Computed example of a mutant assay.
Amino acid sequence: MQALLDAIAHMPLPTDAQRIFHGRGGRHPGCEQWTLDAYPPVYVLTSFLPAGEDTETQLATVGAALAARCEQLAPGQPLNWVFQCRNEQLRTQGRTETRLMAGAVPEPHAVTEHGLTFKVHVLRGQNHGLFLDMAEGRRWVDAFAAARSTDRYGLKVLNLFAYTCAFSVVALQAGARQVVNVDMSHGAIAVGQQNHQLNGLTTGASFLAHDIFSSWGKITRSGPYGLVIVDPPSYQKGSFVATKDYARLMRRLPDLLAPGGHALLCLNAPELGVGFLQEQMQELAPELQFVERVANPAAFADVDPERALKVLVYAAPNL
């Protein structure tokens, strides 16, 4: 795990939420199981392999490295860090094993990204409330919403699979007029509402805790939209399976988008490459034109871009 230890030894003091080390990208042989994230003031170390006989020794080594670096960066400040084991067996069961290794986790726990504040939870579940790999996607939305903020009728955004509504916060802060957030999880939507409040956003957002596939009538009536964001889970039993359900979303896009509107399509499934999205879009919504693939954050570099997070932009024709 030397590459992980080297990353810790050279990391700056994180202020925003961010990934510190991405072994999952395959660029550090022997460290593929490890990731290290900063949710200030807490570090989260994750292993994607089952705990072995040497796990405790490895954790002690990482803990010592974190303590040494944090003492250099912020002398006298406590070290707060969490370990999560997220191996394949646990993930298929929707479970994780999470331990507080040192210090404490704030409650409530809020982090920042590019001046915005988001509520997170790092001691439970596989998802912590803010997907760090989507930082550049949020930056793209920020730029797009800002550029469209002077449009005659303002920018209306549809945020599908909104989770905790980070895209909505970004879009409204950048000048969007309205965002419709849709997610079947009442808990996630509730956190999304809190995220808007944390950023002083009291108008412009609506929140629908609905199954998207059962709510097309309501979703369509609120349109058309200048931006449709599609960020589903790659696999969620009983809810969404990318290989069969993504096509159902693509078919709807031409009717949801206003003339000149854009769609941001996201997919985090290592087994599905860019072609999975592009080929289906060509078949199911050929009138939408491919614009670009949004780059992932540098911290998430992968030896194979096809395995990494895919974020594609498409545009509807102008009138």
Rank of each mutant, 00 (worst) to 15 (best):
L256S: 01
M11A: 07
L277D: 07
V191K: 11
G260D: 00
M250F: 15
L5D: 01
A17G: 05
S214M: 12
M11L: 13
Y314K: 03
L73Y: 08
H22T: 05
H262V: 10
D16I: 01
E271D: 14
A263I: 05
S185Y: 01
E292F: 04
N80Y: 02
C85D: 10
L227Q: 05
V42W: 08
G103Q: 06
M101P: 08
G25D: 05
R124L: 09
K119M: 14
T150V: 14
P12S: 07
E53S: 14
A147D: 11
D304E: 06
V157H: 01
P50F: 04
G273S: 11
T203M: 07
A38K: 02
Y225F: 15
L198C: 06
H186W: 12
P305D: 01
P233T: 02
L319D: 13
R27M: 13
A145G: 08
Q282R: 15
D211M: 06
T220E: 12
A17M: 09
G76R: 02
L272K: 08
S239T: 13
A285T: 07
A17L: 05
E306D: 11
D37T: 05
L198G: 05
L45K: 12
R248A: 06
L172R: 10
N268Q: 00
L319P: 14
F290H: 08
Y246T: 01
T164W: 10
Q89R: 15
A68L: 11
P286I: 02
T164A: 07
L257V: 07
G94L: 00
P233I: 02
A190K: 14
H196Y: 04
L59H: 01
F213K: 01
F48P: 00
F161S: 00
D255N: 13
Q89S: 14
A263V: 06
A104I: 00
F83T: 00
L158F: 09
S222M: 13
Q33W: 04
A102G: 05
T150D: 13
Q126W: 11
A102I: 06
E71P: 08
